[in-house]
Design a protein around this nucleic acid. Structure first.
Lengths: 340, 340
DNA sequence: TTGTATGCGTTATCAA
DNA sequence: TTGATAACGCATACAA
């Protein structure tokens, strides 16, 4: 007998399947003794209920799915823990669903919603392009966390920082330090999501401070994965080799900054004496790097908590602030200094 | 109509459900025209088959699950990609299942196996304690990847490095550099898995080189998460404050080393001039840190490939080498130097 | 408090 | 090439 089912247990216990079901699901209307007896034989025979059958039968389920594109992105690391904690605190179960690079997260959401009878969905990462028509097929509440794509603006519930504004602030800080030639190490050229927003903030700050925008100082990822140390290293190398003058590097993300720092070091440069370096996101590694890196810290844990709170408010049909924008924190550290 | 089912599609098309099923599943015995017609209405009505029902009905399924404990561990980042690629290359589908910290991965495996009719399982991380009896309940082939717990030895299919041996090699290298007082920043004191193995290798190397083992030079994580930068920082601080003499720090993992480096820097020390620092695993960050960190690189991608190959050989009942041990590579970088 | 019977949405068998 | 129909394993309404 390969698969042991609820029927087998019922037979072994000499009871009906519904009684076994009651024992499994902690129903109140069951005799305590028979319940124990059933639970014992279940343990004895290592019976494990088939989840597909349960999901199929059940109409509700109290489970929340978190869909992540780029699951090994360190940015998500501590957020996942918060999701896990907050969701189980609400007595819901938590499904972490990895979305492959070439997969459409909305398709995954639609499928998973039916399969697991989800009560709510969190989207983390990805989701830069999508059609409204598809989004409409998701029939449970969902929250977009941490992704600030302009196309999503004001349409769906979300918890983000204002990437454009915070990037503006960072650039402004660097300008106030006296830097006039700030190289920007960006994401891919065709990026339409946070990568683009951060570039925009950079440009606007330059403009507002009367610094002409110099295309030669803006580098885009070519070949390497975006937001990687590898890519930061390569871009900084290209920058150095271009002969372009600059006094500061502003990297679009922390990993990129780390890669860029290493390129500078390998070229015999000092940070911040020869060049200042700043970045965006505020991952732990920026604190432990030497020199520690000035960065724009996103309040990841608070945002994760707010995401879950927003999602549950949506589920419970409470009035909500649909689009929540958090402030990032400019963390000034050793990698930047005033010049002139 | 909330949930649209295969019956609805059948009715809409004026055909039987089995014909719709045939269209969905690319069965050969169906008229091409009716198939197209069905597919069109499916698209039109955004019908998505319910996976729970499919899983319930199907007996086979060609899917492999990878169970990960500690999904945001950077060690797994590129391995996940390899799993994804290799599994889909074999025309199997890939399920990445996150296992929560306090969850038993074997329980998860047993459940998932039934739910999704798995063909095979990969265990990544965790799995340090378990009972044979439970493992026996897993009735499909599985491979333990990257975890080298002594209790698992020679029992189950696995792909690992020999943590004890490689830790021995690293320690021996440091000894050959002239270091006699090598501080070890370890995992938790009660660790019985790779943490313990690496400590053992360290001890054996000392012994073999006639260096007395000094308990005061071995620090264990207290409070912080193991294998974290935070923990490395705290341990190095404790070490410095203890007043113990040492010339070298050997950290049990790369993150710990990074944390330790920062503690040294904050104390005004130079690396490697004042202290050498070495670590284990060979993550990308060791290459980008300044100074770059000497480490014992595990061939993660090769191991991930080997894991999948082994799993499929098991599935296809080919003769296999049950326990595959890979060599780590000593990568000497800037953080260590010869002394005396 | 318990058991029987029905159906959840599919796939697969079989007969047409 | 098609369509009824019987499972898949479980939860639950209802009867007992």
């Amino acid at each position: 007998m390969d698969q042991i089912t609820i029927k087998d247990i019922a037979r072994l216990c000499g009871v009906g399947v519904s009684t076994v079901s009651r024992a499994i699901n902690n129903h109140p209307d069951i005799n305590e003794e028979t319940k124990q007896m059933i639970l014992d034989t279940i343990r004895k025979y290592n019976y494990v209920p088939n989840n597909s059958a349960r999901n199929l039968k059940r109409s509700d389920s109290k489970t929340i799915a978190v869909l992540i594109k780029g699951i090994s992105n360190p940015f998500f690391a501590d957020m996942i823990q918060v999701f896990e904690r907050e969701i189980s605190r609400k007595k819901y179960s938590f499904v972490l669903q990895h979305v492959e690079e070439d997969e459409d997260e909305v398709d995954v959401a639609i499928q998973l919603e039916k399969e697991k009878r989800l009560k709510g969905i969190v989207f983390l990462g990805g989701l830069s392009s999508h059609t409204d028509e598809k989004m409409k097929q998701i029939s449970v509440p969902f929250v977009i966390s941490t992704v600030d794509a302009p196309s999503l603006k004001r349409k769906y519930a979300s918890v983000t920082v204002d990437d454009e504004k915070e990037s503006f602030r960072m650039t402004e800080y660097l300008l106030e330090c006296g830097h006039k030639k700030i190289a920007l190490l960006a994401a891919a050229r065709q990026d339409a999501s946070i990568g683009l927003m951060r570039v925009k903030g950079y440009k606007r700050a330059l403009e507002q401070h009367g610094i002409p925008y110099d295309e030669g100082l803006v580098l885009y990822t070519e070949g390497q994965p975006t937001y990687s140390m590898e890519s930061g290293y390569a871009m900084a190398m290209r920058l150095l080799q271009s002969g372009k003058e600059f006094t500061c590097i502003y990297a679009i993300s922390d990993s990129v900054a780390v890669g860029a720092c290493k390129a500078l070091f390998n070229a015999g440069k000092k940070i911040p004496d020869d060049y200042s370096v700043a970045s965006f996101d505020g991952l732990p590694m920026t604190e432990y790097y030497e020199p520690s890196i000035t960065t724009m810290r996103q309040p990841r844990k608070e945002m994760a908590e707010a995401t879950i709170k927003l999602l549950f408010d949506l589920i419970r049909k409470k009035p909500v602030e649909f689009r929540q924008v958090y402030e990032a924190e400019l963390v000034v550290r050793q990698s930047t200094k005033r010049i002139r």
